[in-house]
């Protein structure tokens, strides 16, 4: 076999591809400091920190952020419970319709978000359900369940049945086994799944526009700025903060599940 070094062309194409993926995000960081406030002029005429103070004093940004955090926390909590239960059932038991259940769980992210959105919207309209934080959470928890499920199911697969049998042989009942054997083993996978679910919900906009009514989550606030730019410098700062806030859970989830056969985030 020839030397195991990549051909030059392949190396250039691979690294150029990675650069293509990252350059636009890095650009956001530069724009957050620009002194220009009317156009998207490049290169920036000057750099300033003023916009951070301006953004800090904006009540609409804070209230949108507050709603986003509330929705993400509630959806993550629900998704953790439902996703883990589902993963436990699918991985520990063989039953009729098991394949269907695992397909059903991934359906909310396999179909385009707009389908989930319009479906929920039309269900709310048929049932005369008024829009509230709860209607947003209903949508978010449904697709957040998938990431928790994916992480948990991969970990359950690695958790060997003999440990659970050993625990039972030593006299532990089901709940003691759950508390002392199962939970410590799956905890980091659940934490990773929860972080990813939080990031997913915090960023979601397509389903949310259909289920939010007049409420503004942070992504909806950004979408309005994108359609009708009014506060370009504030949007630049918010965009940069959102990038940083979503990077942390991703890195955290990566380090928590590293080294196993599964790695978190593979199926957003």
């Amino acid at each position: 076999m020839r030397s195991d070094r990549a051909p030059l062309g392949l190396r250039i194409a691979a690294f150029a591809g990675l650069a293509f993926l990252h350059a636009p995000i890095l650009l956001i960081f530069v724009y957050a400091f620009t002194t220009e406030d009317r156009t998207y002029q490049w290169p920036p005429p000057g750099l300033t920190l003023d916009w951070f103070a301006v953004t800090w004093n904006r009540p609409d940004v804070w209230s949108a952020l507050g709603l986003s955090v509330r929705v993400a926390a509630l959806s993550t909590a629900l998704a953790l419970v439902l996703g883990t239960l589902c993963a436990a059932a699918v991985s520990r038991a063989r039953f009729f319709g098991r394949e269907t259940v695992s397909l059903l769980v991934i359906l909310p992210i396999a179909l385009p978000g707009i389908i989930t959105g319009i479906a929920l919207r039309s269900a709310f309209s048929l049932g005369d359900i008024p829009f509230s934080t709860l209607t947003i959470v209903l949508g978010h928890a449904t697709f957040c369940m998938v990431v928790v499920y994916n992480n948990a199911v991969a970990r359950f697969r690695r958790l060997s049945g003999s440990m659970i049998e050993a625990s039972a042989d030593l006299g532990a009942n089901g709940f003691q086994t759950l508390r002392h054997i199962v939970m410590p083993n799956i905890a980091s996978a659940l934490l990773a799944g929860g972080m990813l679910a939080f990031a997913l919900s915090f960023d979601e906009v397509i389903v949310t526009t259909f289920t939010a009514g007049q409420q503004q989550t942070l992504p909806i606030w950004m979408l309005e700025e994108l359609v009708r730019p009014r506060q370009r410098p504030v949007t630049n700062v918010v965009a940069m903060v959102v990038v940083i806030v979503t990077f942390l859970p991703i890195l955290g989830a990566y380090y928590l599940t590293r080294g196993g056969s599964e790695t978190a985030g593979g199926g957003k």
Binding site: L18, H22, P24, I25, L196, T235, A239, I250
Partner: peptide, 19 residues
């Protein structure tokens, strides 16, 4: 390098392209 752009905010990515 692939995961971070995948998970970073969809709207921020669209906004970056607007810039």
């Amino acid at each position: 390098g692939v995961m971070l752009p995948l998970w970073s905010s969809y709207l921020v990515k669209v906004y970056a392209w607007k810039l």
